[in-house]
Design a protein around this nucleic acid. Structure first.
Lengths: 133, 133
DNA sequence: CCTTGCCTTCACACTGATGTGAGGGTTTCA
DNA sequence: TGAAACCCTCACATCAGTGTGAAGGCAAGG
């Protein structure tokens, strides 16, 4: 499919799809006329990229792990592709993701705690006539 | 305390402390000579700010909620200071953080699954004399 | 007094992720 | 043939968060 369709199907502007290619996250084929030619799997990949970017990962990290996230269930890479170095790299990325999760969870908890302290109970509705906000 | 000490105690460069002030997140007093004069609570505030920034909140959001977060345990502001809008905003942010956590956890699990499939068992320890990692 | 090490403001610059538009080719359809 | 709707590259702009350095004031100590 061409870039416009991928954009429509993912909701991601074409500008970003080109940017992700520039960042080596997507590798569409090129048609004879030079148009990018995306495959079906790119839809999922793009959503994956968006989610990870939004979660605070850099394109660099995503570039490192994306190949191993591609298949939903099926692993297509033969085991010997996983060199010790790659395995170590993956473990490192997992750790970093975990650290990020911890950080986010911590701050989520802080915000939640605050919210419950300050608003212990959701006010049913206004019972006085004044609007004091 | 002066900016240098706060910087040392929080690990945040002075440049950023000034930036946060410019963004209306910190409000140090000024000594007669013009030096910024921070209080003890600012240490916690700065860490708070760092965490929230790192969690993807903008300075604008933080500015909106920080006044309510200042006390470590004690909330001294009356609850009506938190407008319903701000509360909603806060809940929205919490939800978004949660979504990020979910996304990251999902992908972390995938990477782990990939590793365990491809490397079903962690080699106990080196039993041969080579160090190959 | 002079150096050293704080502090001040100002300001330019970079990065990553994005928006936006110019200038131009291609395909399709009327 | 011409307009519409695609596509291309290039490039400048924005935004938040930072780095960095210049130019200078203040304080303490030899």
């Amino acid at each position: 499919m061409m870039i416009g369709e991928l954009s429509r199907r993912t909701g991601v502007p074409t500008r970003l799809l080109r940017y992700y290619e520039e960042q080596d996250l997507l590798h569409p084929d090129r048609a004879v006329n030079g148009y990018r030619d995306y495959g079906e799997t790119d839809v999922r990949d793009v959503q994956q990229i968006r989610g990870l970017l939004d979660s605070g990962l850099t394109t660099e990290m995503i570039r490192a792990i994306l190949p191993y996230l591609s298949g939903p269930d099926e692993i297509h890479l033969p085991p010997q592709c996983l060199t010790p170095q790659t395995a170590a790299l993956l473990r490192g990325e997992i750790d970093r993701i975990q650290a990020r999760i911890d950080c986010l969870a911590r701050n989520r908890d802080r915000l939640r705690a605050y919210l419950t302290v300050v608003q212990p109970v959701v006010q049913p509705v206004v019972q006085t006539k004044g609007e004091d906000l």
